[in-house]
């Protein structure tokens, strides 16, 4: 019971924090411009880290023509009941930010140049 209460409080704080920041942010869907080896490595690292460190294959031109990056299992079994993960690149206060839509995790990209979609 005690642990549940603590988790509830922590969750509420996180939720309120998210609401407050969402109020002031202006997210604009964006695309990567002039990708570099460093920006590709950063994208790969951020996506992999967000998904628990799993190995990920991403195209060199990922997010250069679209703001949405869809990640799915490399291997499917044929009758798959799951759903893919979605990452949205946004411009937020002039920063390139990758948003994991399933968890609302937001990761700033420091090696990446982007422009509004």
């Amino acid at each position: 019971m005690r642990s549940v209460s603590i988790m509830t409080v922590v969750g509420a704080v996180v939720f309120l924090s998210a609401c407050k920041t969402d109020d002031v942010r202006q997210d604009v869907p964006a695309q990567i411009i002039d990708p570099t080896p460093e920006s590709r490595a950063e994208l790969l690292h951020v996506v992999s880290s967000t998904l628990g460190g799993r190995a990920v294959t991403i195209a060199d031109d990922a997010l250069t023509e679209d703001s949405l990056l869809i990640i799915e299992p490399k291997h499917l079994t044929g009758r798959d009941l799951g759903k893919p993960d979605h990452f949205r690149l946004v411009l937020s206060d002039s920063r390139c930010v990758l948003v994991h839509e399933e968890s609302n995790a937001r990761i700033g990209l420091t090696e990446t140049s982007c422009a509004a979609e």
């Binding site: 992999s48 998904l51 799993r54 190995a55 990920v56 294959t57 991403i58 195209a59 990922a62 990056l69 869809i70 990640i71 799915e72 299992p73 490399k74 291997h75 893919p84 993960d85």
Partner: peptide, 8 residues
């Protein structure tokens, strides 16, 4: 458990 960009 490896992942990939869809279709890549």
């Amino acid at each position: 458990f490896q992942l990939s960009q869809s279709g890549i």
